[in-house]
Every structure is written in C-alpha cells, then in structure tokens.
Design a protein around this nucleic acid. Structure first.
Lengths: 139, 139
DNA sequence: CACTTAATCTACAGATCTAGTAGATTATTA
DNA sequence: TAATAATCTACTAGATCTGTAGATTAAGTG
C-alpha cells in the first residue's frame, strides 16, 4: 500500500494538472480542494519541486504549478520519491539495492530470481502509466 | 517493499518446500538454515499453519511440513497474509476495501481508476507466480 | 506414570516510520 | 514598507515492525 503522503502527492499533482493555465496556485487552495492537511502538503509540494516536477513562485501572486508535461510524470517516479522502492525486496531493487542479511548466495536464491521477475513486470505497469493517464481518467 | 516477516515467510516456505519427504522439520532447523530469528519464525509458521499452507506435529518427532502443493501457494496469498493488501490504495483493494477520507466521489476519481488498473495488472503477476516457481528457480 | 521434546500462547519492549503541527524565516510584489 | 506566500527547522503522538522471554499444552518414550 502507498503511504498517505504518496497518495496526497498524486492528489496534488492531479489538481495542479487539471488547471487550464499554468498560473501559480496557492498551497492553501490545493490543500482545501484535495483535503490534504496544509502543512503536510507543504513538504510534499516542496519535494515535487526539488524533483523538477513542479515549480513555484514566492510572494504575492505566487504558488505552485506544473513544470513537467503530465505525460512525463511516471507513477513510478512519484512512488519512488514518497514511498520508496518499487521492488519488493532490497536485493532486487535497481535504485535502492541492498544485500539481504540472511543471504548466502544471491545467484542461487530462488526468491531473488522470482522477485526480479515481479519487479520487471511491475515496472512495466508503473513506468508506463503517467499523470496524464490519471488526468484523462478524471470525469 | 515487503516486510522482513513476509520475506522470512517465503524463506521458510522455500526451505520446507525443498524437503524430499513430507516429514516434520523442527522450527529450530528452519531458523538455523534460513537465518530467521527462531522466536520470530515461530509466529510466522503458526500463521502459515492457520492459513492451511503448512501443518505441524507437536512433541518428539514433531515439527512443520508443507500441506499445500507448492503450485497452489500463490505469492499473493503470502503477501496478503504478512504484508497486507496487494492494491496500492485502500479504495481499490478487493480484500481490504476502505473508502478514502478525502474522497468525494470514487467514480469520478482518476487516481482510483488508474490504481484499479495497476491492481489488476499486479494481480496477474503475483497470483500466477507460486512457491513452485521459487523452488524451480533455486539452483 | 514420569520425562523429554517441541509446538503453542501470552505478553512485552525497543526501534523505526508515519502523519501531522508549530513557528520562524526568506523572497516577491505592490 | 507592508502584505503575501513559499521555505526551513524542529518537534510530537501514535502506529507498526522486529524481536525477545517465559509459561503452557500436546505428543511420544522408557
């Protein structure tokens, strides 16, 4: 399951993605409309900005708005950022690899091999789906 | 990512599945060979027994052994048991459904729709792969 | 029956992570 | 200079994860 933070990030991205004009939207507006606690949302938006997905303007007339094309924001990107690895085990993670403490030999571990397959299949899904798909699916 | 408990469960199942004879294996033997803390393993094996995947015998000559055919033990079963829902959001979970607090109308939520698709694709993977596949993959 | 073996049950505890809050600071505009 | 709005730092309550300790029950053995 995704953490609330991850889900909130998707809600925020969806709200900002739905805007016609690329004009700055207040954090408080996003918080109100998506029902995400404002202070919690702040750090989420900041992370999305640091990742280059959003950008922002300070001061009056400021706010957040989408920088990337929704079609270029993969579910996998957002999930990795807020939820951690896509892989089910550290020993099969491409981005966060770590050997298992109990592992004697990775090359002979059946679990490892199967989880690599699961990872690859999962990536096919979450790397193909993007924010654009979520926006399209909105009524 | 899977919890350690879930990973340990897979290791234990793999070890028991590798046995030639369906003769009871001591918890302590499984713990030693899989490097899972013994007392922690106890509760895992007990859960697997309650789920009908393993069975056990008490007293001398006792221990745990596989009850189900490895081909009938889906990854999804074990993951659900120890890790929780396969779905990424509560509102798209088949087995643990819960509405989102922030949700106004599920039928118009793009995130919901996309996550249903992701769930279905994920299920195709983890429900098809079984303990038998892990055993086959062992060197 | 007494003894040993080994699973089962109950309870707890430290560490880590999650979700959320509070308040000060910096940048921008008017 | 005043108002606005993002940014940064720090903290906290609660939940979950991982693991441990010890008593109890069931089964076989002499």
């Amino acid at each position: 399951m995704l953490s609330k933070k991850t889900k909130y990030a998707f809600h925020a991205l969806t709200y900002l993605g739905k805007q016609e004009e690329k004009t700055p939207i207040l954090i408080s507006e996003v918080a109100d409309k998506t029902k995400v606690p404002k202070k919690f949302l702040e750090s989420i938006l900041l992370d999305l900005k640091k990742a280059g997905i959003l950008t922002s303007k300070m001061g009056k007339g400021g706010g957040y708005y989408l920088l990337k094309d929704p079609a270029d924001v993969e579910l996998a990107d957002v999930i990795r950022m807020f939820n951690g690895p896509i892989a089910l085990l550290p020993c099969v993670s491409l981005n966060y690899y770590e050997p298992c403490d109990e592992c004697v030999d990775e090359t002979t571990c059946g679990l490892n091999k199967i989880m690599i397959e699961v990872r690859d299949e999962t990536l096919k899904i979450v790397a193909k789906k993007t924010l654009a798909d979520i926006l399209k699916a909105e009524a």
